[in-house]
Nucleic acid binder design. Sequence first.
DNA 1: GCCGTTTTCGGCCCGACTGTTTTCAGTCG
Length: 583
Amino acid sequence: MTKDDVADALDEIGTLLELKGENTFRTNAYHNAARLIQQLPGDLAQMVADGKLAEVRGIGEALALKITTLVTTGNLPYLEDLRASIPAGLVKMLRLPGLGPKKVKALHDLLNIDSIEKLKAACESGEVAKQKGFGAKTQTRILEGIAYIDQVGHRVRIDLALPLGQALLEQIRTFPGVIRAELCGSLRRRKETVADLDILVSSANAQPIMDAFVKIPEVIQVLGQGPTKSSVVAGLHVHGTKVTLQADLRVVEDTQYPFALHYFTGSKEHNIRMRQRAIDRGLSLNEYALANETRSVPCKDEADIFAALDLPYIQPELREDTGEIEAGELKKLPALVADSDIRGVFHNHTTYSDGTASLEEMALAAKKLGFEYFGVGDHSQSLTIARGLPSNVVRKQWAEIDRVNAKLDGVRILKGSEVDILEDGSLDYTDELLAGFEYVVASVHSHFGMTEAEMTARVCKALSHPAVTMLGHATGRLLLKREGYKINLDEVLKVAAKHGKMIEINAQPSRLDLDWKYVKQAKAMGIPIVINPDAHSTGELALYTFGVQVARRGWLTKDDVFNTRGLADVMKELARRKQNPIV
DNA sequence: GCCGTTTTCGGCCCGACTGTTTTCAGTCG
């Protein structure tokens, strides 16, 4: 059982207990434990075996026992019993906006409703509105929610959400009376996907801004409008995709803005820690102030708030309560890598395989972005669907690279390949041909259905090959579409560290693996990370920025990322690795 | 369910908005 599986089980227990009407502090303990497990570094089974589980703050005797049962047996009778006692439809009903555990439980107790279908029928017949605590508006809202959940009740990738957020923000900034305005929430923390947009504005007069906001052309529906907070559904076409998201706008006084900015940036878990920190110092922190009955600490920006709580400024990407508070106390927060640190890229495609631009076009586009090197990583021969290169074409490409390099100025093409890791873990070219590349990206593109043990062994075998420089997209996931293949990344990282291999952050916004939680782990193990756009066109080279965001969420500094090095340094290191592979 | 130099019991972050209410519970973030 993976950490994610265990976390899912604990989350489910928390949710089911909520539906039973349990004390929220108890249910929160489960949700909190789920988060802790997910972000735990190292091997969970090993921790369980060593009896180290209860040492984690937030996991006590009861949770340690349940987690141990889950990890060692693969299931948990306590969860099975809970599931059996609560209809699965109730959990689905929780996804409807405006319906929480209390209302879902009431609907079940009063009207025996245990599915969205039954709920819809009961609303349409007017039964729901007759119940105590419910009314006509709630009934309508539920029906709207059932329709809404099909359209927008889902998460959206950051590359699609960001343009919509920025479109709204730009218009809001032109409203009269707006002093400061920013996108907050998970978008500001640069999560891979977001569920909604949080927009914060400071102004002396909120009402006109509220009124103007709901009239923005992108606004499809107004969900709610109060004196300082409005919620809408907004939509925009981004690269041909219709993006629809809920957007919440909050307006505060300008003196309150830093507190609100911090508050609405989250994460919730980070905020709870910060609040606790304020309480420890005899103060109360909320979205308006850091104060108590006798005094209020003025803060002109977020840095002042952190300083008032004896912390250095913490970048939004780190605010997940995964150690940033503790690192801040010790003055050990990383100086995060930035877009401007990236000097080149390694994993890209040209017209030789499934790219849309020539070698020279790609190299010139890379130069335009300020890169010193452009690494070609076209597909290898067995990936015929992507026109993988047979060995004779590889040699032809090398000759062209030499010709183009001879006339290029200020950018150099590096001879690489994205070599398939075959079913048995061997590589898709002969050792002789592999020796001719300046570097090799090894990736899995086939047989996704293997067991975890098989896939782990396959990738680990490839990583032990001396010709391999780095591992390409580590899990093969497609965000919001397809789970990655089953693989034990803890084991893969161990093998990568042992053989001195690098691991890629694939910057395609639809992929973004290695996931940031493992990026952090890889850094701790001393594994160099490479940020690759996996560009199939000149325009896609710019996607590297989404990889930088993952790197930042994974606490990486410039020194942790291989492609922040200049051309001379990179060529020297690649040559050194070829001379002395660690096997 | 967790946690403890105020502790092994009694706390556990906090405010806006909505709808169904005559003062507040539930939901949401």
